[in-house]
Write a protein that binds this DNA or RNA. Sequence first.
DNA 1: ACCACAATTGATCGAATGGTCAAGTCTGTG
DNA 2: CACAGACTTGACCATTCGATCAATTGTGGT
Lengths: 234, 234
Amino acid sequence: MLSQPVNRPLPMRHFADELPAAQPDGEPSAPVRAMTAAGEANRERILDAALACFARTGLSGTRIEAIAHDAGLSKTNLLYYFRSKNALYLAVLTRTLDMWLEPLRAIDADRDPREALGHYITAKLEAARDHPEASRLFALEVMQGAPMLSAVLATDLKELVDRKVALLQRWQSEGRLKPHEPHHLLFQIWATTQHYADFATQVEQLTGASLADPAFFEQTRKAILASILGSVLP
Amino acid sequence: MLSQPVNRPLPMRHFADELPAAQPDGEPSAPVRAMTAAGEANRERILDAALACFARTGLSGTRIEAIAHDAGLSKTNLLYYFRSKNALYLAVLTRTLDMWLEPLRAIDADRDPREALGHYITAKLEAARDHPEASRLFALEVMQGAPMLSAVLATDLKELVDRKVALLQRWQSEGRLKPHEPHHLLFQIWATTQHYADFATQVEQLTGASLADPAFFEQTRKAILASILGSVLP
DNA sequence: ACCACAATTGATCGAATGGTCAAGTCTGTG
DNA sequence: CACAGACTTGACCATTCGATCAATTGTGGT
């Protein structure tokens, strides 16, 4: 049984905690005094270190002390900035989520379908190359049933995807795309691009290369584009 | 510091332990007496329960007691069959690996490329439908750098993949497949099919359906076949 | 220079949990 | 039936790890 949280006053550094912050900004409404520059920097370093650790060993697999060590702080000091491991995990997730969803938003009704989808695939593959930890973090989270993210996924992501699916359907009805269940198209793009981040170990073991290698990146991009665009463009 | 393992005699049930068993069969070389029928059944139930648990919460996230509970045994009794959590985890992995790789082996030089690849994709999608936990287990393991599987992956899987890649290249040089980097073809098949198992939560949240629904399964299969076969068949 | 509060630390607590031990009970075989 | 050894159990140990607390140091603003 958990002991009642007591809810004593204590440091205002702990804002984006268990529940999504009331202020979407993430900043505390009226802290008595602003956070020191060093403090801000520490927060960032912690979040970076936490992302790396959580992406590598998952929530339960990472010791809070390892994160602190990687960030160059003591465990206790880390707990000063984030009241609990769960709070830190959630903070990392939310901080990364926007960046992760952004490319999808860029699929715009004004653009040419071929160009929009091509850009999207390229952007996703670049994200897989530049932020593989973010990809792995979400993969781990979603694969385990998204215990912390299900709410956001069911609302924000769902809504965003619904909009894009509608757009793809419109393009289809206008004859600018071949008939093709839009959801599957999205899944296919996600799956193939993220595969190179999530399973980088395997990819490297089998091909000897990684997305960090520009030639391999371009080869991969071409392969994905050919397969996916080929099946949806008229 | 770990205390020296002591290595006392003790029960012979513990065979496939930390390291891959000397006997690939997995059976102890000459047990004083054979395992009881009930014992065998328990072993299986433990492995089943462990697969489900590990796939849901990962190695560090599952308590050994939860597995025991799901299998209907006491924790101590489970530890009688598997000397440690790691040993059990490894046993689950190896037991599942063969089943997981089998469809790839079925890609045969004698068969027609279209038929062989079509069968492979279908088989992988069926596996994703019928054994999503196995898919998730491997995904978790590989995403974390395959700490327990890297040896097997680097040898068995690598060798198998090399053979199939060579076959695909031969088909290409014979003009029976369009030129297409074979590794990417395999990755694409793996990524798209496994996606429906690994990210089932997300798929269900966004589409309201799962592979368990025959109509959705068939729709998915068609979509994947169209995209992948379309890009490699002449 | 002072002071309120941010930042940092080391000691410590307590629950969770992997694993051990000693003592059984059950069962197939001679 | 007797017994060796498979199977089962509950008590217990040791450690890890998240989290708390009290106390100290650093620092920005007046």
